[in-house]
């Protein structure tokens, strides 16, 4: 029992040490702008633009459901324009960033881990090094920066789409007019609602891509190892996103 606990503690410390070293190596590679700068645009398109359809799809249906559930909950108790408040606040503060984040953990996190994992086991990462490239400049920084910059933008689009579909649902399915919905949106709105969701989304984007890179570059054992890394990246990202979600709520709200 004691041996098992000790073994787990040692493995945990080793993993923390590896992660710390990974972060240090990534920071050291930051000045190599000449390498990562030209790769950043490609990654921004892959992480951001290519992720838009899935995020928009999720946000669109979430907006509709939020409007209907708010109406179901508040009818007969509070004025129905509160539907606009619920849709706006919930999309901006919570569901927009978190649902998009979880979807991107699957889409982007898995993709990064699988790509880098395959490069690792087929010695492409070693080949980069022998060609005098720093893998942290070439592979890690463009992906992590793209995630940090693009996920908030993608989430912002998703939030906007969710609000629009919530509004359309309110018009079509509920007894609510546009001025009432807009009144609800403005009611209790604070600018913090906007930046809170975007800051949270940036941290999600950074986490998803960073976890994908760490797990991918530590892949061992051929195709099976790549599969294992891909699963790990999604699971670790999803768990960390939920932890981060609680962290930001405690720190910023």
């Amino acid at each position: 029992m004691i041996v098992q606990i000790g073994g787990s503690a040692v493995r945990g410390l080793e993993a923390a040490g590896r992660f710390g070293r990974f972060l240090a190596d990534t920071g050291r590679a930051l000045p190599d702008v000449g390498t990562w700068g030209r790769l950043l645009i490609v990654q921004m398109r892959r992480v951001g633009v290519d992720s838009l359809p899935v995020v928009v799809f999720i946000a669109a249906f979430t907006g509709v459901v939020l409007a209907l559930q708010a109406s179901y909950t508040f009818t007969g108790t509070v004025p129905l324009y509160i539907v606009g408040t619920v849709v706006g606040k919930t999309m901006m503060l919570e569901l927009g960033p978190v649902l998009s984040g979880l979807a991107l953990a699957g889409r982007v996190g898995a993709s990064v881990a699988a790509e880098l994992g395959t490069m690792k086991v087929t010695e492409q990462v070693d080949a980069l090094e022998t060609l005098a490239y720093d893998p942290y400049s070439y592979l890690v920084i463009p992906r992590v920066l793209a995630g940090t910059l693009m996920v908030p933008l993608v989430v912002a689009v998703g939030v906007a789409v969710g609000i629009v579909t919530g509004w359309l649902a309110s018009l079509g399915l509920l007894d609510l007019s546009t001025p009432e919905f807009v009144k609800g949106l403005q009611f209790l709105y604070r600018f913090k609602d906007t930046w809170y969701g975007l800051v949270k989304s940036a941290s999600f984007g950074c986490t998803i891509t960073l976890v994908g890179c760490v797990v991918g570059l530590n892949t061992r054992g051929g195709a099976e190892g790549v599969g294992r890394s891909t699963t790990q990246a999604v699971v670790y990202s999803a768990v960390l996103l939920l932890v981060l979600d609680a962290f930001w709520a405690m720190v910023l709200l």
Binding site: R28, M119, E123, A127, A132
Partner: peptide
């Protein structure tokens, strides 16, 4: 250090067992 290693690597070509081409 990494800079020194990069300098040495500029003088060396490495042909990998399975080519390690960027696919």
């Amino acid at each position: 250090d990494r800079a020194g290693l990069t300098e040495v690597r500029r003088d060396i070509g490495f042909v990998f067992q399975f080519a390690a081409l960027f696919d």
